[in-house]
Design a binder for these strands. Structure first.
Length: 219
DNA sequence: CACGCGATTGCCT
DNA sequence: GGCAATCGCGTGC
């Protein structure tokens, strides 16, 4: 994907990543799924953002080039963000939930659960399932053959999705800003079911034709 | 170098 | 719903 996609306002990128793909090569197989929940974190104007107080040694990659990733540790876990806007801005999209598609047996093992809602329904769970940690901080998935990151419109995996917007989860500052986005009714979205307009039981239906386009993710 | 806390998760009531 | 675990990082002494 062209950097122009990520060099846009963060809430726009957050919406357009829904229905996209995050997958990663690990232990000889691809592990990942379809992005169903994101949050936008802005720059120095957003008190909830790690960039709020400017550049520090640990948030440096959040100020990196658009489309690269910022992986940070929290509560002995990790979360993955995709950097947005021009280099040096310090804004990013937190990927909060995936619908599991590829490498589910390894997800099950790493998450120690048979419940697929406990594999990738939260930013810490995603990183544990996919084996993402600080070693990956700052890399650019676009140029790394071990990664696949693709926005929703580019995948063509999903025809139409209904997007619901709410405040972000777990923040103590700017808690009212509507910067969380998710596929309404999708069973893998984290947080309260009551935020959904429809019952949270649905899975995105992916056509055979669309899946075939990403057949390499099965190898 | 001590201390407090967090863009989380899991377990308990 | 509440709350503790856990650990890297930022702050301040």
């Amino acid at each position: 994907m062209d950097d122009a996609f990520y060099d846009r306002t963060t809430d726009q990128v957050a919406r357009d990543l829904l229905g996209g793909i995050l997958s990663k090569r690990d232990r000889g197989r691809w592990i990942g799924g379809v992005i169903v929940e994101t949050e936008a974190y802005l720059s120095t104007n957003d008190p909830a953002s790690h960039a709020h107080r400017g550049l520090t040694p640990s948030n440096t990659s959040m100020f990196g080039p658009p489309g690269s990733i910022y992986v940070y540790p929290i509560h002995a876990k990790h979360c993955i963000n995709v950097v947005t806007q021009a280099s040096g801005t310090g804004s990013a999209v937190l990927i909060r939930a995936l619908q599991p598609i590829w490498g589910t047996s390894l997800m099950k093992r790493r998450r120690n659960s048979h419940d697929d809602r406990r594999w990738t329904s939260g930013p810490g769970m995603i990183c544990q399932s996919l084996g993402i940690d600080r070693r990956h901080d700052g890399i650019d998935p676009e140029v790394d053959p071990k990664w696949c990151l693709m926005p929703g419109p580019a995948t063509g995996l999903v025809n139409k999705i209904s997007i619901t917007t709410t405040p972000r989860i777990g923040v103590s500052q700017a808690k009212e800003l509507p910067l969380r986005f998710f596929v309404d009714g999708n069973r893998y979205v984290s947080g309260r079911a009551a935020d959904h307009k429809r019952p949270r039981r649905e899975t995105l239906k992916i056509s055979e034709a669309a899946l075939r386009r990403f057949g390499f993710l099965l190898s």
